[in-house]
Nucleic acid binder design. Sequence first.
DNA 1: TATGAATGAGCATTCATTCAT
DNA 2: AATGAATGAATGCTCATTCAT
Lengths: 196, 196, 196, 196
Amino acid sequence: MPEYSITTVARRAQIVQAAIATIAELGYDKASFARITERAGLSSPRLISYHFANKDDLNRQILIDIYTTAARLLTERIEQQDTVADRLRAYLEANLDFLREHPREVAVLTAIGPHLRDAEGKPYTSAGAQEGDVRVLEALLRQGQDSGEFRDFDARAMAIMIRGAITAAVQRVGDFDVDGYKRELVSTFDRATRRS
Amino acid sequence: MPEYSITTVARRAQIVQAAIATIAELGYDKASFARITERAGLSSPRLISYHFANKDDLNRQILIDIYTTAARLLTERIEQQDTVADRLRAYLEANLDFLREHPREVAVLTAIGPHLRDAEGKPYTSAGAQEGDVRVLEALLRQGQDSGEFRDFDARAMAIMIRGAITAAVQRVGDFDVDGYKRELVSTFDRATRRS
Amino acid sequence: MPEYSITTVARRAQIVQAAIATIAELGYDKASFARITERAGLSSPRLISYHFANKDDLNRQILIDIYTTAARLLTERIEQQDTVADRLRAYLEANLDFLREHPREVAVLTAIGPHLRDAEGKPYTSAGAQEGDVRVLEALLRQGQDSGEFRDFDARAMAIMIRGAITAAVQRVGDFDVDGYKRELVSTFDRATRRS
Amino acid sequence: MPEYSITTVARRAQIVQAAIATIAELGYDKASFARITERAGLSSPRLISYHFANKDDLNRQILIDIYTTAARLLTERIEQQDTVADRLRAYLEANLDFLREHPREVAVLTAIGPHLRDAEGKPYTSAGAQEGDVRVLEALLRQGQDSGEFRDFDARAMAIMIRGAITAAVQRVGDFDVDGYKRELVSTFDRATRRS
DNA sequence: TATGAATGAGCATTCATTCAT
DNA sequence: AATGAATGAATGCTCATTCAT
């Protein structure tokens, strides 16, 4: 296992990108080390094993890579808003925008989900993979309830529901009117959360 | 490929049930013919190949099996309602109830989805696999709009969103307050669809 | 193993014909009991095992079937000739004619050859399968030498050579000028055998 | 698929030789990767898959290996001759000599033939596999006709016939008087081709 | 005479991973 | 930092054949 020199970091990034491209094109099942090797122009699958402890390690790095990109975008757009309701709207819109601009990454996210395992090798529930997203959103909703902007509802249930509505769009990537969906999404959860 | 004699039908059902149990416990990847054979107490994996054309055929039969069960329950409960709004509520509640009573089947449904292929061997998009559900729901929503019960919204987008919210619950199977979620789900989409 | 009733004989013939058709179309390797069953419209591969001791038995019956047909034709045409030279010519021409009229049977003959086994299960040399043909022809040639029509040559070698020239045509079935080949064949072995 | 390093080339050659020996002894059908592995003393059948893309690739390499050996011998002996008639004779004799000295390779050639597939996976006709040989010979015959050494005959038909006569000998490998056959072969096709 | 159901052995091939440089 | 070679385990699937009616 190599240290974190410049070339090492670059290699890892290259492999992660090749893996994302391969999974997006062929699906998770067919995206073997052999296929990723071909696409990345690596000399041998051995190079992947050299840079990542095992397949699960690679999967985790892919997730981190994509989440980092997404988080940067989302955080920025949400923080510009003043009211919680606006922040929720910004959250929904930013999610759909990310989806439109990074459909490949988003598809890979859902493809990898069911195959992730924790440190002991046990499979995450696919819920587990989304738990982080849900928590963040749940906190935002609670904030709105505390400030009096939102009505009284089960914040966790609502958060799960919203993530589900976003994920549904994710799986439609390709043949899908993103902007139309975005409008209904915002409208639906505005009605669902606002006071009165 | 054997005909549909009594013993054959029974064997197929046995294998399908064993496959569902195996996938639910080990995940799709690890649910090989060998594992299913063990669980079903069959003499040889050959027996699965004898009764199903190939793995995809087995997957499809699993899906049909589960969908048939679900459809029976859903249809019945929906048809008892008079107004479209009540039917939508019944649809949502019945979905969540099925989920609570058949968590294993529901988990298998989502596990198999990404691996299904159509008759020519091409992979379904996960959207494709859900398209049927979406269409049925979309029709119901349009009916409510036509009757004047529902406000004017994009019925297809709304249908996708509702399916997403249901699927999100599906993936939480296990550590999840189904009844709480059910309440918020009904409330949210009542607000989202009703006139005024 | 059934006795030789009328229905049994008919069934056997049906299976042999289906096997010939299947081998001709798919090649020997892919002509499994399963494929033959489909083509013959039989209820189960079991019916083949019921009527033939094993695969080798079926192969042998196919050979007998085809050889019987061919022998009937050849014998008749040869016996009509008076001189041995004419009989050799008739033999060559009749062989090529059979080839043109029964390309399927002829193709099957060469396809099965390498897979034949003797009673103890040992593989025939492909030579073995043709030994009968060679012997018959060798006798004819010797007859011509004894009568003084033919020059002195190694009759066995010549017989093998002629069979080889015929077999070469067999393998060209399809894209092949049979009549042109027939002319050269007759001419070549007339020159090769005649006195002076 | 590994590059062409020294060890790789040696391994490939080792596997090809083991495959030839295995096919010669057991026949094509029984010469599975497992049997070849045993004979070559490899650690795992996986090693064959590592060095050859698939079974067809291995078959092709076997063919190339044998044809290369044969071509070297034939070409040399033919080129030493001055007249076309002598070259034809040398061609025939060299073929039979190769057959006597490499009976195993020659047997494998005919065993593999029917199983070869082209790049798209379509089966060669057995004619197709021999087409190269026929063409070369046909050219030689035409050369003789052009130079006036040979009489006027259908060069293609004659080429096919000669290849058939050679192949017939090939299939007799083992119990066969090669030199006797060689004499009659040369004599027959001398008479068949020469002017007057 | 026929057949539905079942079976064990075998197949080529793919996989992530490791050994030895 | 990289890599060529090798590996054992596993996969879905096909085969001819047999058991029990």
